[in-house]
Design a protein around this nucleic acid. Structure first.
Lengths: 213, 213
DNA sequence: AAGTATACCTACCGATAGGTAGGTTGCTGC
DNA sequence: GCAGCAACCTACCTATCGGTAGGTATACTT
């Protein structure tokens, strides 16, 4: 069988090389600005091979979208099964999502590009469900925290958006900067600062304010 | 002069119609997936007219990018000239940026698309300066707040990222959802929740915690 | 040995891309 | 009145697009 593998490409299957090339090229250039010719050159195959495995450019794109969805679902499942205080579970959830994203930066970068960017003629993929699911999980944990007296009665919606919003922007910093100015440790500091602000046992967390009673 | 203006387009100059069409089409479809033909059809002119005014597709794109930069700079200047407490100035700054963005959603949407998306063959435009400038302004205000005793000594970097991160995600919600689940009032609630958490005079803002001294 | 399936190939298709050549019309200034 | 300019036009250019037709080579099954 003729295998026209350029020496620099490891001997993986043509199909996998196409997926890898597509992830890379779609992240770098976007859907519309990435040609089938470029994808096949990067994968070291001819164009009919792409059509043989994926039926179309769009088919290859959807293959990658399905992969992203599965990655996210798997990660969320992994992070929903620890015990501890609500604060511990919130920290575990956020840092787990953050580290998972940092280990898959190209995939996450593509997901953000699609979330914020225009379709570019690509088939529609609704990434809102990722964000929505995060809001839901964090809200559940906050409800539990309030019920257990770990979190002050406060504007729950504001607290959810503060936590998820901070997380989101720190994650975005990893994607949009070559050298991120804040990372895992900064995320932990942010989550702690927020939760310290709504902690009923404030003296427990180094309250420096002089309380007026 | 032959003006082939479709009846639905108000009689504004061809150049302005091209800019408006380009903003709309680049936001909807992205740079690469928007053809010169589509732009000219939307503007009601023939292709040479675009080349007459902007020299190229790229030239039209850069015209819009310059406009975005100027809008942002003007807005920041407007919001930097009020008096009041640090909290009042922070609220004014964030709500002013938010309302300014809400009044120019297509422009902000395009800016986000470019910030998160790939170049798509478009000339590079560095939108980091917008985000960087926000970080800087908020950090200055927090430094002042700590000096004035309005804000507790705390992890300043964490506080900056919490405030700007929450703002950013709430603004992103306006862009990515047809019906945003949080808006101006939610933003105010979030900023207040964060600042309440680092307020030295906690009882002043309805502290419900029982302090242990 | 022959037929079938898989995994690839080259050559080519019609359509559209970004862009230009060469032109027309109306207005303005001299 | 005419030259020059601004603001537009049609017709056309080359290059590349997404995709297919028709094929080859190898391995496997009968």
């Amino acid at each position: 069988m003729q295998i026209q593998t350029p020496p620099s490409i490891p001997p993986i299957e043509a199909r996998d090389r196409l997926v890898a090339a597509a992830l890379d090229q779609f992240t770098r250039n976007g859907y519309a600005a990435t040609s089938v010719r470029e994808l096949c050159e990067a994968a070291g195959v001819s164009k009919p091979v792409l059509y043989y495995y994926f039926k179309s450019k769009e088919g290859l794109y959807l293959e990658i979208m399905n992969g992203i969805g599965q990655l996210f679902d798997q990660r969320v499942a992994e992070l929903s099964s620890i015990n501890g205080s609500v604060r511990q579970r919130l920290l575990h959830f956020f840092t787990g999502m953050f580290d998972g994203a940092s280990d898959n930066l190209p995939v996450v970068k593509l997901a953000y590009m699609i979330y914020f960017g225009p379709p570019q003629g690509a088939p529609f993929v609704d990434f809102n469900r990722f964000f929505d699911q995060m809001l839901k999980i964090v809200d559940s944990l906050i409800v539990e925290g309030i019920e257990l007296g770990e979190i002050l009665q406060c504007d729950r919606k504001a607290l959810v958006w503060t936590l998820v919003g901070s997380f989101q922007t720190i994650q975005e910093e990893q994607i949009c900067r070559n050298e991120a100015r804040i990372g895992h440790d900064g995320l932990v500091a942010v989550i702690n600062l927020i939760l310290n602000g709504v902690d009923p046992n404030a003296s427990h967390v180094e309250c420096t304010r002089s309380c007026k009673i």
